[in-house]
Write a protein that binds this DNA or RNA. Structure first.
Lengths: 253, 253
DNA sequence: TGCACTAGCCTGTATATACAACCAAAGGAA
DNA sequence: TTCCTTTGGTTGTATATACAGGCTAGTGCA
């Protein structure tokens, strides 16, 4: 009862190894000829399967070398915003991070629900202020499921951002976002050096790996200084890539 | 000096007709066999070209019938938010729109810059409040380049949303977004029935057609009631489609 | 008239074959 | 050693061929 096209079967075969973790980021994926033998298809069929997975951003193919698993950062479009340090550096500015808190806690309430944890399961709580040229632009309030990140407390999140650390330890991810405007409380206002009465842009992000929620983050940004921008261009002749809601930009004004 | 692969040449051939307007939404695109003759390629090559344009959302292919130009709404992912009426109806709620203003104006300042207009060129100004179950959720403050929409003043934007009207008259589009948190002025506060001191989520959108900016919109949403959500899932086995920052959701709380 | 069937066009997939281009590693020459 | 060449594996593209399956319009029969 397998009516799926054969190229899809090949895609599923590779996808299964990606999702099970058998293939990690940057690992080598079976070559077209290996798939021809293993799956008993023609090379054109294997080629189509790998090519489509490449087009979808899951694999990276290098002519003459081979096919490799893309790391999450490379695959992501929407989530390029993931690593704010890279965004800042891309603008040619200086990034600095100040770690306000790094501790192990029992999850409860909203955090436990967001991460689908049983009561009492542990999470790491990371609180970091990110600065662009010494101006605070993001307060990162992140909770990471402890069992996924045993060495979390040893990290120096002033050097490696939490999101970069997470993409290292969990190879393939999904993410949910929500963006809203909100009034910050006193602590957020202070950490971001915001004026009284100034709203903030609050991005909430939940990331998943292998079907399980790994991390939940509340990202506060000062509303007067920051905006989320993006461009959608359906297949411009020259430019096949499209950028989507990807830049967390410091607003110029 | 044409080193482009031939399937890309076929794609470019079709794309040129899309962008020039020679092919409009829902028009029939040359069949594979027609392209075989016209472009002197094999059917497999023509197939790849049309298949990729289909995967990119620009064409719709129906086995046994033919290939057709997708209308913009169907192609869009990020821009499903485009039509707030559809979003509301998808949630099973009632949409109502109140037209506050509909007039022809001379563009100036920010509007002229955003639409890249010469001084004195005319725009239509549309101001509409969108309600979900009688609760205001969006104040749409839109400017449309007059030469693109000659019959704009005859439209009833309580029945057809401005974005739906625009996708009808300009078949293929690009869009730029910016999302920020801001404090509304008195008029916005009143139209959206917001409490004093409540921030709003401000989405600014600029749409393009055939390389020219067509429309510029400021969309205010009450911060306490609304959020922008999205999910990015790289190729779940069953679900090849991904939703991206696509829903303008009424927050439940 | 009304219905069933068929011919023809369309897309979708699969394969075998071919050649080009790229790259890395091995091997040979200076 | 260092540099150059070769060689084999890899992806990228292009074609001819084949068959399956969906849809439409027209044909012909009742």
């Amino acid at each position: 009862m397998n009516s799926k096209p054969r190229y899809q079967q090949v895609k599923d075969y590779v996808l299964a190894q990606l999702e099970s973790g058998a293939l990690q980021a940057k690992d080598r994926v079976p070559s077209e000829n290996e798939l021809v033998e293993k799956m008993n298809v023609s090379r054109m069929t294997a080629n189509r399967a790998l090519r489509e997975l490449n087009d979808e951003g899951l694999l990276v193919r290098i002519a003459g070398v081979g096919t490799f698993v893309a790391d999450f950062k490379a695959t992501s479009h929407v989530l390029e915003v993931h690593n704010i340090a890279d965004e800042i550096k891309r603008r040619g500015h200086e990034h600095a991070a100040l770690v306000l808190q790094l501790s192990r806690q029992h999850a409860r309430g909203e955090i436990a629900r967001a991460l689908q944890l049983g009561q009492g399961e542990d999470v790491f709580h990371i609180l970091v202020v990110h600065r662009e040229n010494d101006i605070p632009i993001q307060l990162e309030d992140r909770y990471v499921r402890a069992m996924f990140a045993p060495d979390c407390l040893e990290q120096d999140f002033a050097v490696i951002t939490p999101s970069a650390y997470l993409s290292n330890i969990s190879p393939l991810q999904e993410a949910e976002h929500s963006v809203q405007a909100a009034m910050p409380n006193a602590a957020v206002t202070r950490h971001l050096r915001m004026k009284a009465g100034e709203p903030c842009l609050l991005v909430m992000r939940r990331t998943w790996s292998r079907g399980l929620p790994v991390s939940f983050a509340r990202l506060h940004h000062p509303g007067s200084r920051y905006e989320l921008t993006g461009r959608f261009a359906p297949a411009n002749s020259g430019n096949n890539e499209y950028t989507q809601f990807s830049e967390l930009g410091r607003r110029e004004q």
